[in-house]
């Protein structure tokens, strides 16, 4: 299987000017995401997963190690990646269609007709046909995240990056969006890097779950998730599911105990 996104020995340091010390946000992280794979990264807050996401998205510079997509090293944002953000970050003055077109318009890869067709196609895929002329402020949080997803998919990235996209939603909407995401993903057939702090979200969605530890952020373990697809939400009550969830939980907890801090759920 071809590797789409390859991260090799990535280390990220921040300099704290005030204390003139450095903080190691990521320490020697190596990880490959295969073509068409859904890989989730889970870890407690402060484990560097946001730094990792920002580096892969090209929003944060890095000096040590490499990040490459299809063998090409990435520096800065590119058309080969698209991000679904935690906050929908939709332009409030653009209609839903205008927002779905936004990424494509910025990247200038498609002509006008194609952009319009793709916008319609992906709006339909995320189930928002009929809302084309609405403004984001008129939509619920869950619907806004669908637009966010459609915007990223419409830009036709090689790798789809999802940065805790459901973290701001209430728990019912979140569960519903998780199963929706799986349906959409099965049709869109994208390579996905998904970041979350929720273990059960990661296990439910992903083919593999990478667990990170904090301070310095390191890759602690990678779990294969054996469940067949399509998956239903009932899977979350399957004993095997709970067992994997528990294993990941223990790994993070033991890490937190070592660090002497409380794990946020």
């Amino acid at each position: 299987m071809a590797v789409k996104l390859q991260i090799d020995h990535l280390t990220k340091r921040y300099w704290l000017e005030r204390e003139s010390t450095q903080v190691l946000a990521l320490n020697d992280v190596s990880l490959g995401v295969n073509d068409g794979e859904f890989l989730a990264i889970v870890g407690p807050s402060g484990c560097g997963k946001t730094s990792l996401m920002n580096i892969v998205a090209g929003l944060l510079p890095y000096e040590e190690g490499t990040v490459s997509i299809d063998g090409k090293q990435v520096h800065g944002p590119g058309t080969d990646r698209a991000v679904v953000f935690q906050h929908s970050s939709l332009l409030p003055w653009r209609t839903i269609t205008g927002n779905v077109r936004y990424g494509m318009e910025m990247q200038k890869r498609f002509d006008e007709t194609t952009m319009q067709q793709r916008a319609e196609h992906f709006l339909k895929l995320v189930g928002l046909t009929g809302f084309e002329r609405h403004f984001p402020g008129e939509l619920s949080g869950g619907m806004q995240q669908r637009v966010n997803l459609a915007r990223a998919l419409a830009a036709d990235p090689v790798v789809l990056l999802m940065d805790e996209p459901f973290a701001a939603l209430d728990s019912q909407t979140r569960e519903f969006m998780q199963s929706e995401l799986l349906k959409i993903w099965s049709k869109a057939k994208k390579t996905v890097l998904f970041i979350t702090h929720q273990i059960n979200e990661a296990v439910y969605l992903a083919d593999r779950v990478a667990v990170m530890s904090s301070r310095p952020g390191r890759l602690k373990a990678i779990f294969d998730i054996p469940f067949s697809r399509p998956r239903t939400l009932a899977l979350k009550r399957d004993p095997k599911f709970l067992e994997i969830e528990d294993k990941i939980w223990q790994l993070i907890e033991e890490e937190s105990d070592r660090m002497g801090m409380v794990v946020e759920v």
Binding site: P77, G78, A82, F85, S89, Y102, M106
Partner: peptide, 18 residues
């Protein structure tokens, strides 16, 4: 300027002019 919007625009390769 909304920082989140700026981040999204940058991630989609928007130029300063865009």
């Amino acid at each position: 300027i909304d920082r989140d919007l700026l981040r999204a625009a940058r991630a989609f390769c928007a130029s300063d002019w865009q």
